[in-house]
Design a protein around this nucleic acid. Structure first.
Lengths: 192, 192
DNA sequence: GTCTATAATTCGATAGAC
DNA sequence: GTCTATCGAATTATAGAC
């Protein structure tokens, strides 16, 4: 077990707190209390509550963007590319569920330019995945279907994963969860 | 177009506001401003901000519970039952997207007994759906798979629908959206 | 890095006149 | 039903001593 610095501990505990209570519902006092010190000390680690959210969300978003760019530039088939994207989503949701929670639920609390930047980057990301899906359809690897619907489905998978992973009742096997997700997206639930 | 009473207009505009900005981020002053009157007037319609959220969320939840009970007590096959549930979710998401938004994103802001009640009812609802799915698997209509995974997938569909329906770029055909959703859940995206 | 103290603002909610 | 006025609590953030 790696020993965490105070700074790392601060961001880890704060992230968990915000993802569970919600960004707006989490006060600086909540954060201070979680770390057993006074409110003023929170500002030893961050400039403002606003910047805290920005750092978490763009940290996640930018990592996904870079990964997707690498996949797109590869010579894999559309289906193989999609499986890489699913795998990335699954691994991220398993290893960093709280980052995902903020990304999915709290982006609305971004303000001004940062909100704009988020929307644009996310839109570009989804459009790129949609192009892969439509390529798969036109090549016949994927069944005939509405590319937009399929793309939306694709992204709902990350939310689903998050629900599963943060559910205390369930013991998650990371390998199995990724397999189940991939099977679901490709095969559905029907027995044929 | 039906004419709305002042009361209906209040709840309609308030619902839309809260679902777009988030419950915590929406202030009583925001609500008053949206309706072109002063803050004090908000309390002509509601007792507290807390009760407002409770009414919206349990209105949605209880309707789903009653509908599911009727399905369960019917003599339809598991697959047919699931298709009724999907249809209900799709129709609700299409006709009442903002109620769904509150139900999905804002339940964390319920407090005390109401939060407990929500969790229990939702848990029971999911468990009932899971039983239908597992019945379908054991009867061979659905492929062999983890019932828990499948159930989670099932419920992520409502969130996906919501994303689609509230996306301004997309013109939604209600019949088509339900078909695409059903196809997705049963067949996945692969071409076989 | 930690504390006390407090500024400055915003929040939900109420009182009471019209 | 609508307004003005206001309360008390909670919020983010800062100043400055140790």
């Amino acid at each position: 077990m790696k020993k965490l610095t105070k700074k790392e501990l601060f961001f880890e505990k704060t992230l968990k707190l915000i993802s569970e209570k919600g960004f707006k519902a989490t006060t600086m006092r909540d954060i201070a209390h979680e770390l057993n010190f006074e409110v003023a000390n929170v500002y030893n680690y961050i400039d403002s509550k606003e910047s805290l959210l920005e750092n978490y969300i763009f940290g996640t978003l930018d990592e996904f963007i870079i990964y997707l760019e690498n996949i797109v530039e590869s010579s894999y088939s559309p289906v193989e590319k999609l499986k890489f994207v699913i795998s990335k989503h699954a691994q991220y949701a398993i290893n960093k569920p709280y980052e995902v929670a903020l990304f999915v639920y709290e982006w609305r609390n971004l303000k001004g330019d940062k909100l704009q930047e988020f929307k644009e980057k996310r839109s570009n990301y989804m459009y790129t995945v949609r192009q892969i899906i439509e390529e798969g359809i036109s090549e016949g690897q994927l069944r005939e279907m509405d590319g937009e619907f399929a793309t939306f489905m694709f992204f709902s998978s990350m939310r689903w994963l998050f629900s599963m992973i943060t559910n205390d009742d369930i013991k998650v096997n990371p390998i199995e969860i990724e397999k189940q997700l991939t099977d679901f997206i490709f095969k559905g639930i029907e027995n044929k």
